[in-house]
Nucleic acid binder design. Structure first.
Lengths: 329, 329
DNA sequence: TAATTCTGAACAAACGATTGTTCAAGGTTG
DNA sequence: CAACCTTGAACAATCGTTTGTTCAGAATTA
């Protein structure tokens, strides 16, 4: 309609290398394009450029606030840079299938991978990917790109806060023994104890996964000890612990203080409202997308980005321990 | 490598019209394809067929269990049918932009749209879409495809249950007055009252949006009345209501029963654990994807699919009203 | 004025599939 | 044995861009 070659249109619309276009021609093309509401066909462009401008994100759970925040962060940043986000909820069962499917069909230029799987499983899944990827809150020996939260520091701060309230017998509701984050958190927990000259007692540490039910189960062990406070790995397991304790007749927070890592709206919905150390999960998604996009643009970014924990949010679940010894139930 | 024309490879791999292929040739091609781990390039196929095999889903919130369940359902069904899901978290602010962007660039074959916007806004947003779309839990006058939850019946059941416990002064924590679902729920609420010959009292109905804070604010009105129970529109507003009441010193559930529509893990995390009427939100996502895929396949499905509410889940937040009159606080 | 450079846009070749058409070779039929 | 089908696969056009190359005409230089 503008009576020019399509190649000219392409050059004008892409905006770059405008040196070889007469202003008059450019204006005419832009005008017609606007009138026609014309946009370059994405698929054709992707084929020609052999880039899809699409990122894939693989998450194990969609209803976990940690992952939904990461998705949000990634999607926003991706959109800002002209990328779209393809989501792939991956059941733990068909591990790796989606990774393979997305990358082998050239549907995505790169992958954001959040996985709770064991190192070896994850590694073999990723071996099939023929695209760059970034790991979320995971470190895998090798050169994989990663964005990690500083769980150790977060755990240290949470524990430190409990100590500052006067607690000396502090339980830890942790994650799976093998998991990367579980170790980190445990280390942070110990670090805080050390700093306060409180001896480490392995009976006060229970491991589970990060589910509500695991929280319920694990806390039964702690209930048998003389712990006066609990530092829980995640919101969800903390919620499980509180539910179970209450069911057993405990007064919260008077008889047991609870603090958790990660923050989300629902910490406030719990009773008592849960004190937390906020973790920058949305930021994690954003940074991961950024890292991946840089990588795709040919840059060679530092492989690992560590994100410091956020602030301590003191709500109602943490109080000073009772002066007297707790009456055993 | 199999020494055949690409067209032959295409025919074999697509699996269809295998009549014109010698078994020997087919096997050879398949073997080589497997050895090379070859998959047809998605982009090229999309260009040639002018179909992206990608669905877009537009949601206002990512951390709301209602939407994440819908996404999960849609993603699963889409994947099963060879489609991918492009996610687009849409801030209420830039309404419609993403709809336009996704569809005008031919990135998606169709759209799944969950929106809390007013009819007119939504309508004008959708006017820009040049692809088929399905509305989630929304009805728009016209021929739009929709999947709706039967909020009316769910509200009726929830209210009915409270009545069966002996409550006669039942408050309703509803949604925005204009909203489609708000009316539905109110109707169900009234229906249950009618059936029990309980007069409708407008003072017992408060409207807000579906947020935690709105729940807190709205419940203050109800706290001034003689209501002994509350039927809340959503989990999140119910949580807000309970938090606020507890803050004001109420004993839950003895002094106020609460039931909410929709169910999710976190209903169980609240204290007292929240009774709910489960809503098939994951199913809604699934059905919406199905409807859209059918439409894209040239079928002409019924425009509206209504999903019946799920079962009543009785937890600890609903009890019989106290026999005596409540002491006003 | 002739030779050269510059400009701006058209030309044309991909990108990797899908799918209608063609066509040689082998089989069948009258 | 000639004419005609059938079969199986190659051939070729196409989808809508991007981008290297070409090229006519205008501008500059010698």
């Amino acid at each position: 309609m503008a009576e020019v070659d399509v190649s000219t249109v392409s050059r004008v619309l892409r905006g770059q290398s405008e040196q070889r276009i007469r202003a008059e021609t450019r204006d005419r093309i832009l005008e017609v394009a606007k009138k026609l509401n014309y946009r370059a066909n994405y698929t054709a462009r992707a084929l020609r450029m052999s880039r899809t401008f699409t990122l894939g994100i693989v998450v194990p759970q969609l209803d976990n606030p940690v992952f939904s925040a990461a998705i949000r962060g990634a999607e926003n940043h991706a959109a800002k840079n002209g990328y779209s986000l393809l989501i792939s909820h991956r059941d733990p069962g068909d591990a790796g299938t989606t990774i393979a499917k997305l990358s082998q069909m050239n549907r995505v230029d790169g992958l954001l991978v959040a996985s709770l799987d064991a190192d070896e499983v994850l590694r073999s899944d990723l071996a099939e990917a023929n695209v760059p990827y970034v790991l979320l809150n995971r470190l895998l020996p090798g050169t994989a790109l990663s964005v990690v939260l500083d769980s150790q520091e977060a755990a240290r701060r949470a524990t430190e806060y409990l100590i500052s309230l006067g607690h000396r017998r502090i339980g830890h509701l942790g994650g799976r023994p093998g998991g990367f984050n579980a170790q980190e958190r445990l280390a942070g927990y110990k670090m805080a104890l050390d700093a306060a000259n409180i001896p480490f007692d392995p009976r006060l540490v229970t491991m589970g996964d990060y589910t509500f039910d695991a929280g319920r189960v694990s806390v039964r062990e702690l209930a048998k000890t003389d712990a006066t406070a609990i530092m829980a790995a995640t919101l969800v397991s903390a919620a499980g612990a509180m539910a179970e304790l209450r069911l057993a007749g405990w007064q919260l927070p008077q008889e047991m203080s609870v603090i958790a890592l990660h923050d989300a709206l629902f910490a406030e919905m719990l009773f008592p409202a849960l004190s937390t150390v906020m973790m920058p999960t949305e930021e994690m998604g954003r940074v991961a997308a950024d890292l991946l996009i840089r990588k795709l643009s040919g840059e060679d970014p530092d492989p690992v980005r560590a994100l410091p924990p956020g602030r301590l949010i003191i709500r109602d679940s943490t109080v000073a321990p009772r002066s007297g010894a707790r009456i055993s139930k």
